[in-house]
Design a protein around this nucleic acid. Sequence first.
DNA 1: TTGAAAGCGCTAACAC
DNA 2: GTGTTAGCGCTTTCAA
Lengths: 339, 339
Amino acid sequence: MHKKVNIKTIAAELGVSPSTVSKALKDSHEIGVETRARVQAFAKMYNYKPNSLALSLRNQKTMVIGVIIPQITHHFFTRVISGIEFVANQKDYNLMICLSKDEYEKEIQNIEMLTNGSVDGLLISIANETLEKGEFGHFERLLNQEFPIVFFDRIPPGIQADKVIVDDEAGGYNAGKLLLSKGRKKLGIISTPEHVTVGVLREKGFYRAIQEAGVEVLPQFNVKIEEKFDIDNQIDQLFTQKEFPDGIFAVNETYAALAMKIAQKRGFHIPRDIAFIGFTDGVISRLTTPTMTTIAQHGHNMGNKAAELVIQRIYEQENDKTPYQTVVISTNIVEREST
Amino acid sequence: MHKKVNIKTIAAELGVSPSTVSKALKDSHEIGVETRARVQAFAKMYNYKPNSLALSLRNQKTMVIGVIIPQITHHFFTRVISGIEFVANQKDYNLMICLSKDEYEKEIQNIEMLTNGSVDGLLISIANETLEKGEFGHFERLLNQEFPIVFFDRIPPGIQADKVIVDDEAGGYNAGKLLLSKGRKKLGIISTPEHVTVGVLREKGFYRAIQEAGVEVLPQFNVKIEEKFDIDNQIDQLFTQKEFPDGIFAVNETYAALAMKIAQKRGFHIPRDIAFIGFTDGVISRLTTPTMTTIAQHGHNMGNKAAELVIQRIYEQENDKTPYQTVVISTNIVEREST
DNA sequence: TTGAAAGCGCTAACAC
DNA sequence: GTGTTAGCGCTTTCAA
C-alpha cells in the first residue's frame, strides 16, 4: 500500500520542522502567514489527513462510542442504532458496533476489547444469557471506574447506572385496556420466559389492566415461549382447547404475526373471533393480513436518548458528576385492522 | 474516571523497567521465571489490559474492519453484517460500522474517517446517491493506494476491484421460470428505477426467462417504483386496468408483500388468480398471508465472503498481490404458498 | 517566527 | 536476565 503522507514527510519535504507543520495546519498565529500557506497548500495537494489513532492516543479521546447489542438482525435494535448514529454523528462521534449474540462470554469479550482505549463511552443492551445468569460484575467494574456507560432496553436490574428504557409496563397496560375496550373478556397472552425483563414487564402491565377491570386470564391462555422448542406448536395450544381467547396480546411482533397466521389457519376470523395486538417497532405489522395493531416502541428515540446520555457522561468525566438518570421512552398504540 | 493501569505503572510499582514488564507479560524467555511470575500476578490482580490504540499505532495494524452500508434498518444488510461479523470474529477482527444513509457526502465522510488509520480494510455497499451520480473518485483513490477494500451487493460499475455480489440476474431468471412453470402467461414485474443496479439486473433476468418462453410483459404490467411517491398507489395500477397479470415478480420483499395485500384488497385470490414471487432475505415472507415464495439472497453468506476477501487483501498487502476477484453468491428459490 | 523535546502506551533492537 | 532507546504520528510546552 502506498504510504500516506504524514506530518513528518510534509516537514521534510518543505524543509521545516514537524511542529511547525502541525501548527500551520491549524492556522496558528505562531506561524508566519507565508509558511502557513505553503504548508496548507502542500497538505491539500497530497490530501493529508491526520492519523486518528495518533490523535486519539495523544488526546486520550477517541471520538468513538461503542455499542453492544445482542443481535443485529432484530429490527428493533437497528432502529435504536440508527437513532444512536443520528445523535453521535451530529456531535462528531463514530460508532463501533459489537454483537454479543446473547452470549455472556462474548459480551465480556466485547466489553474488554472496547474499553481498552478504543472508545470514549459505551452503550449496552444486555445479552439474554447474562440476564439469565444474573452476573453483572463486568458492568460493575466499569461503573466503579466511572467509565461512561449507558444501558438501554435490556438493563441490569438493581444496578445504579444511566439507563434508557421503554415503558414496557405501561405499554402492556395499554394493550390490555385496548382489548378490554373492544369488549374482549377472554384474554390471552403470548409472553417470554422470566429472565427476559422486557417481556415480564409487558406482561405485568397487561395483568394490571385486566385486573383493574376484574377480568382474569385463564392459565392455559398464558403461553411463555421457549425459543429452543418449536414456536408454532407452543402458540397453537391457544387455539386447540375447548375454549379459546377472544383477544390476544403478544409481547413482540413475530409472536403476534405467527399467532395471527396460526389462528387464521385454525379458521378463526381476525378481529371478529379474536383480536390481536403486538408490541413492536418493526416493519411486519403493516404487512400482515390483516394489518396488526401494535404498541409502538420508538427505538429511534431510544437511540437518540442513549447517545445523548453517554455523550453527556463523557463530557462530565472531567467536570462535576450528575446523578444517574433513567430515561423512559413512552409507547403509543398504533391501531390497525387486527383489533 | 479512575486511571487504568499501564505498563509504566506496573514497572514503577514492581521496580523494574517497562520493557521487562512488556516481555514478561508475553512470557518471554528473556525474562527470569520469577520476575515473569511477579509481573503476571500483578497484572492479573490489577486487571491490566494493553491499550489497543497504542498497539495499533505501534503495529500499524488495528484489527478493525470498517463497514459502510446505506441503511441499517434494511434487513438484508443486517444479515450481511452478521455474516461479516462471524468471519471477522473468528480472525480476531472487530467491526466499525458506518451508515451512509444513501448519501454521497456521508459516504465520503465515512471513508475519510475510516481510512485515516482507524481500520485495516473496508467493506462497502454503495449509497444510492453515489450510484445515481456515478461518481466513484473516492473509491478509485483508495484503490490506487492499494488500500484493502471489498465492495458488496451495490458495486461500482466498471471499476476494477474485489466484489461480492448476489447473482441477481439469475435470480430474476429463476423467478420468471417459476411463474412460467406454474402456467402463468400474463406476467407483471414490480421493479426499481434505473440506477438501482440490483433491481435492474433482477429485471433483466426476469425478461430473459420470459423471452425464452416467447412470452411478453405488457408495458402497463411493468411498474418501476419511485419511493418519493406513494408506493401503494403505484402498485395499485397493476390491478385497476381492464386486464391484470396472473403472475407478479417483485424485486424486493416489501414491494411483494405490499402488492399481495393490495391484490387481496382488490378481491384477487393468491395464488389462484395471481401468483407472487419476491426477492429477499427477510423475515416478512414467512409471515404474510399467504406465505410468500421468494428468491433467497443469502446475505449471511455474502457477509462471510466479503469478510474473507478483505482479510485476505489485508494479509497480502505485504506479500504478492492476487488479481481482483468477484465472488457471486447464488440465490435459490424458496417456494411457499403464494405460487 | 520557528524548532527541539517530551510524551500518549507499547514494543523491539540493541546494549549491558 | 534486565534496561535503554527509539519510534509509531501527533501536539504542546518551552527555548531559541
